[in-house]
């Protein structure tokens, strides 16, 4: 009985380990091509591009990712996504024609036919600034007068 319980616990821990590893895995997938330019320190992916990091998962037709070398490692600093951009972040989905993510400030900026979709609402506009660290979204329309600033609930309670 004890042995059975121990083996169950062992497999549970093993599963949890693999599940957590699979969930935090970062990757780039491309359907057509990928160019690694080591002189300009960038990767350009083309065709049904999928990018995942610890923050979000993004889909687009094209992606240019710039990186820096730090402690003998290469780290993405700027991710640019072109055409049919879809970014899934927790329960929200951002859509647009173009997006740029900067790692330093953890901000995603989307432009062109932008929408932000959550389980309770859909908002559309021309530009979206999603501040991930501060849980803040700023949605601008083509007409500068109409601007929607959304402070998400968990942050609003602080």
């Amino acid at each position: 009985m004890n042995l059975s319980l121990k083996s169950k616990l062992f497999f549970l821990i093993l599963n949890l380990f693999f599940f957590s590893n699979a969930n935090c895995e970062s990757y780039v997938k491309a359907g057509e091509s990928l160019i690694w330019d080591s002189e300009n320190k960038s990767y350009t992916a083309n065709g049904e591009v999928e990018f995942k990091n610890e923050k979000f998962i993004a889909f687009a037709d094209k992606m240019i990712a710039k990186y820096i070398e730090e402690n003998n490692d290469e780290i993405f600093t700027i991710i640019e996504l072109f055409d049919n951009v879809v970014i899934e972040f927790k329960q929200e989905t951002f859509k647009g024609d173009y997006a740029i993510y900067t790692r330093d400030d953890n901000i995603i900026r989307l432009t062109g036919n932008v929408s932000i979709e959550s389980p309770t609402r859909i908002l559309t506009g021309n530009e979206l600034i999603a501040d991930i660290d501060n849980n803040k979204r700023i949605l601008n329309s083509a007409n500068e007068e109409s601007l929607v600033e959304v402070l998400l609930e968990n942050n609003a309670n602080d």
Partner: peptide
Amino acid sequence: MGLLKAQGFKNLDYNGKIFFKGEIEFVI
């Protein structure tokens, strides 16, 4: 950066560019 899998490549060593072809998976 990680491990990259592709269906072919062309390495232009003189200008530091490598072109990977086909379906690509790059695990970081």
